[in-house]
Design a protein around this nucleic acid. Structure first.
Length: 648
RNA sequence: GCUGCUGUAGCUCAGUGGUAGAGCGCGUCAUUGGUAAUGACGAGGUCGAGAGUUCAAUUCUCUCUAGCAGCACCA
């Protein structure tokens, strides 16, 4: 019999009969390892304990201590165990797919009856029973005809469809957890008892389209989370609780920032506190973009369809547009307009006024552009996804040879803004030419190179998103990471030769002839609405002092201090600090609690001592400790805190 | 838009086929207190909108609307 040489992580090699399984290898080392082992890595591939090894290879055996492999297996086995549990409880249920995702797994089912949240604990209980049976997991390779016949006989049409979409030469692997069987690439654990029964939880039920296609059947998806130990599950559930506490919709109410109501779905009523954040942020952005060489413009909200037809939006984007029909009493013709969903066509109109010379390029045009988009109702989410929003929009009109420098400058600008706003980490996604595209290969080469070079000059790591660019040009998307590890796509940089063409934008070059400029679409925050939502959740409502709507409350302890309170408030306001007096007839404990809940960063308490000594007792949000400081020192310090980062 | 769930006082939520309750908040009064809730009293609701069933609907049914979770979209 042929033999194979297996090399272990410590560098030692051992000979085995060809076709040896990882389980047999583990057995040859020790009984306890054979029991504890969950899988192997063979030549870099995650390997089931049952799979045979036919040629020389490197091998590493895994136990539950190897988090990466253990998580994958536990979650994947739980997907199968859950599907088995569901089919045992509701035998008519048809199974589809159940992949591992971040922190857990899901499985999609087709079932006549809809699952309820109460069903989750029933399913969980059944899953634990299956785990406790410690039934073996086994696997076989089947040919297609047998597999299809099997699933047809069992009334599992989705599995049949899946098999038919798998390339013909690929072997089909079948897995059994006890008697329950599923088509699966593997690997899996050795038996169901290897799944820790106390480290998973079914989370929710939701609809999901078969194969992610909104034209196909709606299935029922059950989500679960799972880890290798119960402490890790607990930590995860705590994190979810923390995220719920930070929810901008909850904080928006508690801090009295904004509200939304039924009469204006997807649009925001900004209250004084929220609008203070908004205008502070906008003032900051205005200074930043002016410093970056932009001119600011403003364009109309209601624009005749003719312009949208010319730009192509009428054709491609109409279902997302608010159409405004004006039927004036004596008008012969009904005017049909649309609220602008984007600012770009309007910016081209400004560019097109008068003759532009190559000397005018690059022309950087910015607008805090209010856009209205009829987003699908299910897409709306607090102030993060709305129908009326304002972009920190900008368009750079330039020549092809200016793209690289403009892109590099934008990355610098964006880094500086994100850093000022408390986000040190962001990721760049570089989306390149898609299959369906316009323009010459040569021009795509140039433009893609320009973007790639710009990223390299910035020295920033990036991820290639191949084939995901627009049909007319490549783009960069900027994703920032918040305080609890969530990612948000905010900034974008897109190269567009198409719209200048459609709207006939030209400039006169050195040769005296008219040429087509490129148009670079770019946004840094994305929209003020979404970005403020992210700021709120990132800071859990404890915004940096300069952005906080209510910066200081001066609270009296006794009414004899009222005059001094007013004096301090006036002095702070004169120094550019948003301060207010709280001279209500309440105890200081009550005032401290109320303003702490309201996320006011600084509370200045004033009693007999402070009046006497002209001092203030300073308490910062989140700190138990207070300190007594002189009036002038406090004002000077807070004046600095209240200064936006770009003005310090 | 699709699947499922939800809509009761400003907020968080109980509850019922015979037109409603709690806590917090709000108002009034008393209390002048030293860093996360002083006490008493009081006001406050077309029970999301419309239709149907019923002697009677906040409760049951349907339609609409808005929100929530996910999907599909996306700044």
């Amino acid at each position: 019999m042929a033999s194979v040489s297996l090399t272990f992580p410590d560098g030692n090699a051992r000979e085995y009969d060809a076709g040896v399984t990882a389980a047999q290898v583990a057995e040859s080392i020790s009984k306890s390892l054979a029991k504890k082992a969950i899988s192997a890595t063979v030549n870099g591939e995650h390997w089931d304990m049952q799979w045979p090894i036919d040629s020389d290879a490197s091998i590493a055996l895994h136990t539950m201590a190897d988090d990466e492999q253990a998580n994958e297996l536990v979650r994947h086995d739980l997907a199968h165990i859950m599907a088995r549990a569901v089919q045992e409880i509701w035998p008519d249920t048809k199974v589809t797919i159940g992949p591992v995702i971040k922190d857990g797994w899901y499985y999609d089912f087709d079932s006549k009856e809809s699952f309820t949240p109460e069903d989750l604990s029933v399913i969980e209980k059944k899953m634990r029973e299956i785990i406790n049976k410690r039934e073996p997991v086994r696997t076989e390779i089947w040919d297609r005809a047998r597999a299809i016949a099997h699933y047809e006989a069992n009334g599992e049409p989705y599995k049949v469809e899946l098999i038919e979409s798998i390339p013909g030469d690929e072997p089909l692997r079948m897995y059994w957890h006890g008697d329950w069987q599923d088509l699966c690439r593997g690997p899996h654990l050795q038996h169901t008892g290897q799944v820790p029964g106390d480290s998973f939880k079914l989370m929710s039920i939701a609809g999901a389209y078969w194969r992610g296609d909104s034209d196909r059947a709606m299935l029922q998806r059950i989500y679960g989370v799972a880890f290798t130990g119960k402490e890790k599950l607990k930590a995860h559930l705590n994190m979810l609780e923390e995220a719920a506490k930070r929810d901008h919709r909850k904080l928006g109410r508690e801090m009295d920032l904004f509200h939304m109501q039924e009469e204006a779905p997807g649009q925001i009523f900004w209250h004084p506190n929220g609008w203070s954040i908004y205008t502070e942020l906008q003032d900051y952005m205005r200074r930043k973009q002016r410093a970056a060489g932009y001119v600011e413009v403003n364009t109309p909200q209601v624009v005749d369809r003719k312009l949208w037809e010319a730009s192509g939006h009428w054709d491609k984007y109409q279902e997302h547009m608010f159409i405004v029909e004006v039927d004036e009493e004596h008008a012969r013709e009904k005017a049909i307009n649309a609220l602008k969903p984007m600012n770009c066509p309007c910016h081209v109109q400004i560019f097109n006024q008068g003759m532009k010379s190559y000397r005018d390029l690059p022309l950087r045009m910015a607008e805090f552009g209010s856009c209205s988009r009829y987003e699908p109702s299910g897409a709306l989410h607090g102030i993060m996804r709305v129908r009326g929003f304002t972009q920190d929009d900008g368009h750079i009109f330039c020549r092809e040879d200016q793209i690289e420098a403009e892109c590099a400058a934008f990355i610098t600008y964006l880094s500086s803004v994100y850093k000022d706003l408390g986000f040190d980490n962001f990721e760049i996604m570089f989306a390149t030419r898609p299959e369906k595209r316009v323009g010459s290969e040569e021009s795509w080469d140039h433009v893609e190179n320009a973007l790639e070079n710009a990223i390299k000059v910035a020295g920033h790591p990036y991820t290639l998103d191949e084939g995901e660019g627009a049909f007319y040009g490549p783009k960069l998307d900027f994703k920032l990471t918040d305080a609890i590890g969530r990612e948000w796509q905010c900034g974008t940089f897109q190269v567009d030769p198409n719209l200048p063409e459609r709207l006939d934008a030209t400039y006169v070059a050195e040769d005296g002839a008219k040429h087509r400029p490129y148009m670079l679409h770019r946004a840094c925050l994305g929209s003020f609405e979404r970005f403020i939502g992210i700021l709120i959740e990132n800071s859990a409502g404890k915004l940096p002092f300069w952005l906080a709507p209510r910066q200081v409350v001066v609270a009296s302890i006794i009414s004899d201090a009222d005059d001094y309170v007013h004096e301090v408030v006036a002095a702070l306001n004169a120094a550019g600090v948003r301060a207010e007096a709280d001279i209500r007839n309440e105890k200081i404990n009550y005032k401290v609690r109320e303003h702490s809940v309201g996320k006011v960063p600084v509370i200045l308490a004033v009693g007999a001592r402070e009046v006497e000594e002209r001092t203030l007792t300073v308490r910062r949000l989140g700190e138990k400790q207070t300190s007594v400081q002189g009036l002038d020192d406090v004002i000077a310090g807070l004046k600095v805190d209240a200064t936006p980062p770009d003005l310090r």
